[in-house]
C-alpha cells in the first residue's frame, strides 16, 4: 500500500491555516474570528501528526496533545472575555469595539 507523501499533508495543513488566518482578518464577528483561530491551531496539529509519522518519533504527537489542552483553556478564557464584553455593549462585532482609539 503506497503512503500519502508527507508534503501533501503539509500542503493541506498550510491551506487550512491560511483559510483560518484569512477568516480572522476578514470576519467581523468575534466568535467567528475565534473559531478561525481554532482552525489555525488544528491545521498545525495535522502537520505535526504527519511529521511525527515521517520521523518515526513521538514528539509531534505529544505536542498535539498539549495544543488541544491549550486550545480548550483558550476557549474557556476567550468565551468568558467575550461574555464580559457583551454585558457592556450587546454586540460581538469587532468593528464596534472602538472605545479605545487604536
Amino acid at each position: 500500500m503506497s503512503q500519502v507523501p508527507t508534503e501533501y499533508y503539509l500542503l493541506l495543513s498550510a491551506v487550512i491555516f491560511v483559510i483560518g488566518a484569512a477568516g480572522v482578518l476578514a470576519r467581523r464577528n468575534a466568535l467567528i474570528i475565534f473559531m478561525c483561530v481554532e482552525m489555525m491551531l488544528n491545521a498545525v496539529n495535522l502537520s505535526l501528526i504527519a511529521l511525527s509519522l515521517q520521523f518515526g518519533n513521538l514528539t509531534g504527537q505529544i505536542v498535539v496533545f498539549f495544543v488541544m489542552a491549550v486550545a480548550a483553556a483558550e476557549v474557556a478564557v476567550g468565551l468568558a472575555i467575550v461574555m464580559a464584553h457583551v454585558r457592556h455593549s450587546d454586540s460581538i462585532n469587532v468593528d464596534e469595539i472602538n472605545l479605545l482609539n487604536g
Binding site: F34, V37, L41, V44, G78, H85, I97, L100
Partner: peptide
Amino acid sequence: EAALKYFLLGAFSSG
C-alpha cells in the same frame, strides 16, 4: 474591550 482585543490578537499570534 482591551481584554477582547488582546485576547483575539494574542490567540491569532500563538497560531
